[in-house]
Design a protein around this nucleic acid. Sequence first.
DNA 1: CCTTGACCTAAAGTCAGGTTTAGGTTGTAT
DNA 2: ATACAACCTAAACCTGACTTTAGGTCAAGG
Lengths: 148, 148
Amino acid sequence: MKSYSIGQIADMFDLPISTLRYYDKEGLFPELHRSGNRRLFTEREIDALRVIECLKASGLEIRDIKQFMQWCSEGPSTYAQRKQLFEDRRDAVLKEMEQLRKTLDLLQYKCWYYETALTDGHEDRIQSMLPDGLPANIQKLYDNAFKE
Amino acid sequence: MKSYSIGQIADMFDLPISTLRYYDKEGLFPELHRSGNRRLFTEREIDALRVIECLKASGLEIRDIKQFMQWCSEGPSTYAQRKQLFEDRRDAVLKEMEQLRKTLDLLQYKCWYYETALTDGHEDRIQSMLPDGLPANIQKLYDNAFKE
DNA sequence: CCTTGACCTAAAGTCAGGTTTAGGTTGTAT
DNA sequence: ATACAACCTAAACCTGACTTTAGGTCAAGG
């Protein structure tokens, strides 16, 4: 089976070699083999890295990613846990996206605010519109950002 | 003008008092006054905290939030920089949302994967569908996640 | 008076997620 | 045979964002 050196994988994923060694030390590649003392990455580890990047992007910590990788090497008996993990991450990402949407609304409001301030040379006119006399589209951004 | 103690603000924003003191030490409230040696928070600092939470959620570091707060206390001459900052954060958040959308697609694919594996009792049938013989809706998730 | 609660400071500690350093091995090209 | 690139380890170091600790001030209530 085809295998790759740590340097090749680093190039493939645009990661520092030190990060790959750190991941290995943290147990993220429980099945990684060696030739002599050199790591041999295979399609298995490449798949693992894709999942690692996904789980990291979802906000999961290294120690929990390790847990997942261990489940993977324990076979079918852990399907239920693995499914649960991905459902939890999906829910966490949906929540994070909702939070970002609110953040975005406030940022867009602020973009409008400073564009207006720049045109006017002061904030007086805008301040006099607050908190609920803004142009309708802008008012919506402002309200959304603080809603809940 | 109405003012609040650090404890009242902590309750208001559901933040530890130590965090508020840390923010102050880092220069996030450049105009904060005191009575004796006690901090007096006003509407100004409450607004500041709302912006701090937004900028933090957008991924900005404390030192850059400090810069923004200093611009705010320098008056109209910094409107352009402040506007640019919010435009940059808006773009950063849009990028992050796009990244999260891809992450979500892979997570949903994995949810399907393990649901199927759990039903089948093994991964063999799924593996034989890879990389492009998945059900159409699932194939789309899988493709989106790795698309550039 | 003295205790209690809410505040204060400076400095040290914590935690995640790496990165850097120092020193060593191995395989190939000149 | 030697130089060089690419790999290895253990351990120390780094950064950001807090949190904890230790010790102190101060006003109000019993």
